[in-house]
Design a protein around this nucleic acid. Sequence first.
DNA 1: CCTATATATTTCAAGCCTAAAATATCTGGG
DNA 2: CCCAGATATTTTAGGCTTGAAATATATAGG
Lengths: 158, 158
Amino acid sequence: MVSAPLAVADAGPGDKERLRLWIRMLRTTRIVEAELRERLKREFDSTLPRFDVMSALYREREGMLMSDLSRFLLVSNGNVTGIIDRLVADGYVTRTKREGDKRTSVVRLTPAGMGAFKKMAAAHESWIAELLGGVDTFEVHRLSEMLHAFRSNWEGEH
Amino acid sequence: MVSAPLAVADAGPGDKERLRLWIRMLRTTRIVEAELRERLKREFDSTLPRFDVMSALYREREGMLMSDLSRFLLVSNGNVTGIIDRLVADGYVTRTKREGDKRTSVVRLTPAGMGAFKKMAAAHESWIAELLGGVDTFEVHRLSEMLHAFRSNWEGEH
DNA sequence: CCTATATATTTCAAGCCTAAAATATCTGGG
DNA sequence: CCCAGATATTTTAGGCTTGAAATATATAGG
């Protein structure tokens, strides 16, 4: 789902260029994402959202609240509920009610979840290395810093 | 849905950097996409997928086949069917059976669809100008060229 | 103590998305 | 002409996604 700048009214110089940049960024991430999704499905019978959740839980060994997860992953609460439901059903994750605050529950990776994640993470990293292999190492740094600056700037304002 | 490089086995130098770049790219596009989605919903009661489809049809005034659309937008056939169904129900798009090949139908924007799209496209371009306004004009060019090169390279191999 | 408001989570309806199966039609050899 | 394989599209099952409503619990002010 991505096209290119169109012949519509233009308000400022550089607007068209920014639009072009945005479209290219979107297209690039979609191409890479599609490839990752397909490989995760084929080789691990998993999905990108599951991978992202497991990745967050892997770094927070002590567990996270549902709201921590949705905030960190930039997705809605309701969304996380469904993904965790399925991970629990697969035995990769546990939900533990807390003494003290009965509204919340702590979500943690099980040993099986850890094992499954480690295998996927290794493959994932090598896939990215392969898929972005065409980008020069120097450029990788540069691009990375630019995106980091953009995001810091964004988050500073929101 | 995005995290950061993790402490897992590393195969080559630069792998971690490429992983970091990927994560940042994903996070950036998601932040911008979420903002666009929200604004399209709020101001035009529409969605990004609908916008993308209308955008493709706007540039192809004579219409497109369903398969053209799904190829161009990088989404599955079945997906396009549903989106077009809803656009037809809203009177923004028509499906015309073709003499000669009864399997295919040509999808076109109606005058109402054109009008609605032009309004959205103008707003969309200004939103992008605003959201990516923090990126220096020189950098915009540079980044855009890099992504273009990446994609050409990718498509050359696939 | 009680209640209004805030917080954490789940549920819900609707739309998006994919891969695979089902339909329908077309085309080229026999 | 016939039919096997190719092509175009829709349907289906299952998962992802959101925003809003529903539940449940917590907390602070009166």
